[in-house]
Design a protein around this nucleic acid. Structure first.
Lengths: 339, 339
DNA sequence: ATCGCGATTGACGACGTTGTCATAAAAAAT
DNA sequence: ATTTTTTATGACAACGTCGTCAATCGCGAT
């Protein structure tokens, strides 16, 4: 591997002068500069980050720790967002996923430590409460798409499920819906709690009562091996004579099942029943006809802003608020009609 | 940051002895070993990879270059597969995505070079032909989910679209279907070509003629902003008096639209029409009722095996075949009936 | 007691880079 | 013309680790 010394020899200068050129320091004579640059190009010299790191103790590197990458289809966008920020700001990114294995997580922290990573983005693939286990390692950390439990006061960035659910509910109310069905997410998901809570609050504020809503549990059980009651629940809701005019689904995947159920019963969407989802999984929300009105999870922005927060943390800034929220934008498509 | 010298001082030995302990070299006295290990634990010492790298010139590091992470929902599983292999084999992974930007790609190659990454996994999010642009940088590379164009003879690993499509078609034929509809992927996708080709070949081998099949274009246009004709095409196919008894869809997202179209026409699946997809996007294939019979893209395995191939490449092995194929496993669910 | 041999340990340098300081050359000020 | 300042350059050390080689120690064999 060609080193700074090879370049120096070729350009007939000292290694330090080459270093100056590489780091764009001032006070290098134009002629020298040119000779050195020529040598660099001709030898294909690329500086050795490891050596640089040893001297400066600054790796310009972030690490990403994820749990499962694949439970939620588009959550990889978080990583893309982090990447893009990093790229735009001269940082490189290590990636490690733990598959939820605690030993592996601890090992990952040590590996990151050994690479002298400057900050960690701890990313979960669905919104939840988590306590990272860095063991004895101490690296500045931002939680993305999750919030810290009790153990340590981490900084975090999360989607605003409350606002998203509120907006969806209000949207239906504005369209005149007064009898509304609701199919709940697996209660083990943080989003289940938040979305349901916001739904109930918004319904109450609008003056509707318990009789006006029809709430069913769509899923339960351990993540990855849950029981799925959505299709059956949707049918039950829809075969009632005084069925709701709209159904709010815990997420888009559930909404899809409600579509299938409604169409199977010969109901027209949105004329006879309106449907909204949550998450904006585009393989679903764009593929169903009419396309699905939903609240988009801001995956990409979570990553991008999370990385930005981490940088600010490293600069010693005190982040306020400690737990930032990013809005879940309401995406109006064709699945909601007026009553 | 605590270094090997701090440990040495605390344990009352030389730095070299600590090094021996850290690297599990033999010939260290039991007492010494214990003292050193105690010091390591008490100081929380973690070896500095950068320093190690400088000495040994071996970074034990892979880099991943991806194009877009998010066009295809579960393709992130490729990265997960790579990760898992890396983790099991003592390697750490850098990640960079280029968003399809060529300048960024070239910059990424240099960045990787500067970190003295030992090998690159060049990953595309959908199956296609590509020419990586490493500029002058030379790092051993394996292409994952893509095949090299003309420029350089890269090693690759790809899904076997031909086999998957053949299996799906045969499956329908075995179930007695003799009139089959086919909705094509965007022709710009490599999978479109391969899957369609295998379909036609299999149909021909079975002795069916052109009149027995009904082929429509589902999508075209630039990736990410395509025109979508699937829903309309599905309706056209299904309203014919002598409509096909089964429809093969370019992928699961298209299959979903065919579901919606069929159900909207009051047709029962699979009694009146059978449907198969491709890819096994689980948000779709598990959510539709009946669940979707499809061919699963082996994303995770592509990553895992790709990493393995890269390792073998680094060890100097000559890989045969140069372009490995991984099968697209037929997943039988409920969307196909017998005729 | 002497020798031989393996086990155990440390001194030292090198890896590629950059910070510090010194020196030399050129430009500006006197 | 001399002094001061600025610009340009290099020598050297240091970062943390490990390879090399030499030194010391213990212990059984002679």
């Amino acid at each position: 591997m060609v080193s700074i010394k090879d370049v120096a020899r070729m350009a007939g200068v000292s290694d330090k002068t080459v270093s100056r050129v590489v780091n764009k320091e001032p006070n290098v004579h134009a002629d020298t500069l040119q000779r050195v640059e020529a040598a660099i190009a001709s030898l294909g010299y690329v500086p050795n980050m490891a050596a640089r790191l040893i001297r400066s103790n600054r790796s310009r590197t972030f690490g990403i720790i994820t749990d499962f990458i694949s439970t939620t289809p588009y959550s990889g966008d978080i990583v893309r967002g982090i990447q893009d920020w990093a790229n735009a700001n001269g940082r490189t990114v290590f990636l490690a996923n733990t598959n939820g294995n605690l030993d592996r997580e601890r090992e990952t922290w040590r590996t990151f430590q050994s690479h002298r990573i400057e900050g960690v983005l701890y990313v979960t693939m669905y919104h939840r409460v988590i306590d990272p286990e860095p063991d004895e390692v101490e690296i500045p950390t931002v939680l993305v798409n999750c919030r810290p439990g009790s153990k340590k006061p981490y900084v975090s960035i999360e989607p605003d499920d409350l606002q998203g659910s509120r907006d969806l509910t209000r949207h239906l109310l504005e369209k005149g819906h007064r009898r509304i069905g609701y199919i709940r997410l697996n209660p083990r998901l943080l989003g289940a709690e938040l979305r349901y809570e916001a739904f109930r609050g918004t319904i109450r504020d609008a003056g509707l009562s318990e009789k006006d809503i029809d709430v069913r549990l769509g899923m339960d059980g351990a993540i990855g091996e849950e029981n799925n009651y959505v299709f059956a629940a949707a049918r039950e809701i829809l075969i009632q004579p005084d069925r709701p005019t709209a159904i709010i689904c815990g997420n888009d995947e559930m909404a899809l099942q409600v579509y299938i159920a409604a169409l199977g019963l010969g109901l027209s969407i949105p004329n006879e029943v309106s449907i909204v989802g949550f998450d904006d999984f585009r393989t679903v929300s764009h593929a169903v006809k009419p396309e699905l009105t939903t609240a988009a999870l801001p995956y990409y922005d979570l990553g991008y802003c999370g990385a930005e927060r981490l940088e600010r943390l490293l600069e010693g800034e005190v982040l306020e608020p400690k737990h930032a929220m990013l809005p879940c934008r309401l995406v109006e498509r064709g699945s909601v009609g007026s009553v």
